[in-house]
Design a protein around this nucleic acid. Structure first.
Lengths: 245, 245
DNA sequence: CGTATTATTGACCACTCTCAAAAAACGTGG
DNA sequence: CCACGTTTTTTGAGAGTGGTCAATAATACG
């Protein structure tokens, strides 16, 4: 386990003067989408850029929510814990995703880097002033929150009502869809998370995830070149499985 | 099943001139909280009030999201369906709760009245203009969305990682907490939803919900005067059960 | 009251979990 | 580059929680 202060040790907050947004690779799909150059410039005055190593903690549930984040490079998982250690991963995040949304108070979940991560970091205190001046930013945040809410509802349907096979099919399609949106390949997809993370995302055990994947491999709907990649060989069939048909 | 046009048949849209907000019973905890009298007056110019009978559909998943709602009287359930009819209830709503939030596009879930319902209805088109003028309203919407998101994350933890007993205990405490917030009794609580709705909310079957409740009754942690009410006889123990301790 | 609906209870079953071991992948230092 | 230990993944056997099917009981409603 990484020490709790690993984040701050490795923080490399880039001065706003260097305009990190200018070289941003994910501007088209990220938080900043739809904002004018001027508005982005305003945002750039308060943004910092943070580097976090793989397995590093970005923030912890219950902690004062001092920052909001927009992921630039890497993969992040969000999760909640029960007192006895049972874990539910509520989301996997990829470049362009926003997280840590809170108007006041504390984070409702923990965030951890799956891979080395680079993320934009907006201090909530400084953002507050901006929201008054640039209402479009607030509207953008509202839109992001609504999208997250829709994803959360889908996940509730998955967790409460889908079988293991349906869950795994839904998961593979979700990863594929999100890769496509970022301009990556739809079919050989990368799975930067381990079986344990997949299990905690789907409300299953590692063993059931592994067995279900090998079953799908036997059925020819997917191939597994290695445990970190999956080839979706029959996407229509996967979609049929995912929806319970 | 109620006919699909039942809502429009029973719609009684009250003219804005009659200022329904002035007599609002839930102003302290609802959408309008924290807004000035002037801002509420602006809202009142676009709000309509709608009556829906028990079991009436308020809107359906996939439908164009033309309105947002603030519940005044009654209980509402939100749910999503799989093609084969499996259902996941994502929330139960009580007076003061907001629903139908969408900036554009379609509803992500269906909404149905459990009891006779009275709800404020804001046309999204007219609200759009208001949001420009009164940024505080937008901030309020963002706050509501963030609260909903936190509730959704809790529910994901429940659905993915809690046992039947833990789920039922969590459910009873949730209803009790929400009743308390509206100034109602904490312990004999009303359960306006049937066993089938509880099951679809917790990702269980009716039989398991029923068995778990009778088990808890045998254990003395609750009493069931009738199927529509529950007495929480040992709240600390229920909390221990709900958190898996 | 009789009928329909909903809730409870019972018997049995299966999907997924638990526990355990083997296999594969990974990292590290010699 | 390989040997070694560690971690992760896969596979197996068995068990249990919650599901399915079915019958009874209670409740609501004409």
């Amino acid at each position: 386990m990484p020490p709790f202060d690993q984040v701050s040790e490795r923080d490399k907050v880039i001065d706003a003067g260097s305009h990190p947004c200018g070289r941003c690779q994910v501007g088209e799909i990220a938080f900043c989408t739809g904002l004018t150059a001027g508005e982005v410039a305003r945002l750039a005055t308060v943004v910092g850029q943070v580097h976090i190593p793989a397995h590093g903690t970005i923030f912890t549930e219950g902690e004062l929510a001092a920052y909001m984040f927009s992921l630039t490079i890497g993969t992040v998982k969000l999760y909640k814990l029960l007192p006895d250690g049972r874990r539910q991963i509520t989301a996997f995040l990829f470049p362009g995703d926003f997280f840590g949304l809170a108007l006041e108070g504390n984070y409702a979940y923990s965030a951890e880097a799956l891979t080395p991560v680079v993320t934009c970091r907006f201090p909530r205190r400084k953002l507050d002033g901006l929201l008054e001046d640039v209402p479009r930013i607030e509207k953008r945040l509202l839109g992001l929150a609504i999208d997250e809410l829709a994803a959360a509802h889908d996940q509730m349907l998955l967790l409460g009502r889908k079988t293991a096979r349906e869950k795994v099919a839904s998961f593979l399609l979700m990863i594929s869809r999100r890769a496509e949106r970022r301009g990556l390949s739809v079919s050989p997809i990368a799975l930067p998370m381990g079986r344990s993370d997949i299990a905690d995302y789907l409300g299953l055990t590692i063993e059931t995830v592994s067995r279900t994947l090998t079953q799908m491999k036997r059925d020819g709907v997917i191939a597994l070149p290695d445990s970190g990649h999956a080839e979706l060989r029959d996407v229509p069939e996967l979609k049929r499985i995912a929806e319970g048909a």
